[in-house]
Simulated assay, not measured.
Amino acid sequence: MSFRVRPVRGEDFAAIYEMAKLTGGGFTNLPPDRGTLVGKIARSEESFARAEDGQQGDMYMFVLEDPAEGLVRGTCQVFGQVGVVQPFYSYHLGNLTQTSPELGKTFRNQLLTLTTDLEGSSEVGGLFLHPQSRAGGWGALLARSRYLFIKAHRARFGERVLAELRGVMDEAGNCPFWDGLAGRFFGMHFSEADEFNAVHGTRFIADLMPRTPIYVSLLAESAQAVMGQPHPTGRPALRMLEEEGFYFDRYIDIFDGGPTVVADTDDIRTVREAATETVCEIGDGGRTKALVSAGQLTDFRACFANMKRVPKKGLCLNREATELLEVEVGDQVLVVGR
């Protein structure tokens, strides 16, 4: 039996908590805090249980599961709308050109401006794979299953989707961007601020951060060098996002300076290319590799499958995939090329 993606359940807490302790810090959506994780799982269950359609401040958490072994080896999240409960802050990197006729010189300066431009967007995040499961393409299964869920529940999500990537920090948890900017206003180490943010939210940012634009040239070179750069472990995730059509629109995280990438929801490759098909046969599935999902809300499942098209009838899926998806002949599935 292979892996599948499904909604988180209360009994998954122990596995989620163990993975949270392996993130290495700076992973706001998966903090190693028991109370916060219990709250996240409860919030996810409430979101899946909500009957009426429409975009709200939902949070949907998924797990990567090996049903045969009873193991959970990954997790990811989708947020229906950011900025609902608390403002969603980002820095936007802009330019200011100034000319002095007397000196005969033109100066072009970069500015960081605190904004809430991205409020109302949906968000994908919280993706983490257990170190023992980082081969076999399971990260792609986790990541792309979120887009199939969005496609299957389109009314619950906005016109734009964002993803925040963790910024650069060293093994000791030091963050050059934090040390060069926000840390000077908060009087605390990055790890303390990051933990506080993960548990309590971002309201304290509005209370203490300067509202005026920041000249980048005034920051330490170490801070400037990492602006908009992902943590080395996040580069594969960035490549997957870019393959889906996400792009860097000069928004960066106010804590660690990591990039925030965005995409129009209906232009995300998996959302755009996924098609509804009917299962007409169960067999070996043929040679075509695909990503397939089935079910709505709490019944949502996604996995890799072998498939072949049967003219005028539908799809033949391999038996293992139909067992993972819990579908039978006559059921509908969402299918996109692997």
Rank of each mutant, 00 (worst) to 15 (best):
Ile254Cys: 14
Leu324Pro: 01
Leu297Asp: 09
Gly285Asp: 08
Asp267Pro: 10
Thr288Pro: 03
Tyr251Ala: 10
Asp264Val: 14
Thr276Leu: 09
Val327Cys: 14
Val279Thr: 09
Asn306Phe: 13
Tyr247Asn: 10
Pro259Ile: 12
Arg272Leu: 07
Val310Asp: 07
Glu281Leu: 15
Val327Ser: 14
Gly283Met: 13
Arg239Gly: 05
Glu326Pro: 02
Glu242Asp: 00
Val310Pro: 09
Ala294Pro: 05
Ile254Glu: 12
Tyr251Phe: 13
Phe255His: 13
Pro232Arg: 11
Ala263Gln: 06
Ala225Leu: 09
Glu323His: 12
Thr276Ser: 07
Val310Cys: 10
Asp299Ser: 02
Arg319Ala: 15
Leu324Ile: 01
Thr298Tyr: 01
Leu325Tyr: 12
Leu325Arg: 10
Ala305Val: 06
Glu277Asn: 07
Arg272His: 11
Glu320Arg: 04
Phe255Met: 13
Gly245Arg: 04
Leu315Ser: 14
Thr270Ala: 01
Cys316Leu: 14
Arg309Met: 13
Asp284Met: 11
Val262Asn: 09
Ala225Ile: 04
His231Glu: 07
Phe304Leu: 10
Thr265Cys: 02
Ala290Ser: 13
Phe300Ser: 00
Gly228Leu: 03
Lys289Leu: 07
Gly314Lys: 05
Thr276Phe: 04
Leu297Glu: 04
Leu241Pro: 04
Arg272Cys: 05
Phe248Ala: 14
Arg235Ala: 03
Thr265Ser: 05
Val261Phe: 10
Ala225Pro: 07
Asp249Arg: 14
Gly257Glu: 08
Arg309Asp: 11
Gln229Cys: 04
Thr276Asp: 03
Leu317Phe: 14
Gly245Met: 13
Glu242Thr: 01
Lys289Asp: 05
Gly285Glu: 07
Ala274Pro: 00
Tyr247Glu: 14
Pro236Phe: 08
Gly258Thr: 10
Val292Trp: 04
Asp264Arg: 13
Gly234Asn: 15
Ala302Arg: 06
Lys289Tyr: 02
Arg272Met: 03
Phe304Tyr: 15
Gly258His: 12
Asn306Met: 09
Glu277Gly: 03
Gly314Asn: 05
Arg301Thr: 00
Leu325Trp: 13
Ala302Ile: 07
Gln224Leu: 06
Gly258Asn: 13
Ala302Trp: 11
Ser293Glu: 06
Glu244Thr: 02
Ala305Glu: 04
Ile252Arg: 12
Pro232Cys: 05
His231Cys: 05
Leu297Ala: 09
Leu241Trp: 08
Phe300Thr: 01
Thr322Ala: 15
Ala275Arg: 10
Leu291Ser: 03
Phe300Lys: 00
Ala263Trp: 02
Gln224Gly: 03
Thr298Leu: 04
Ala275Cys: 07
Phe300Leu: 01
Pro311Glu: 01
Tyr247Trp: 15
Leu324Gln: 02
Thr276Ile: 07
Ala321Arg: 06
Ile252Pro: 12
Gly283His: 05
Thr322Gln: 15
Ile252Val: 14
Thr276Asn: 01
Met240Gly: 13
Glu326Thr: 05
Gly295His: 00
Cys303Met: 06
Cys280Val: 10
Gly314Glu: 02
Asp267Phe: 15
Val327Ile: 15
Glu242Leu: 00
Arg239Trp: 01
Asp266Gly: 04
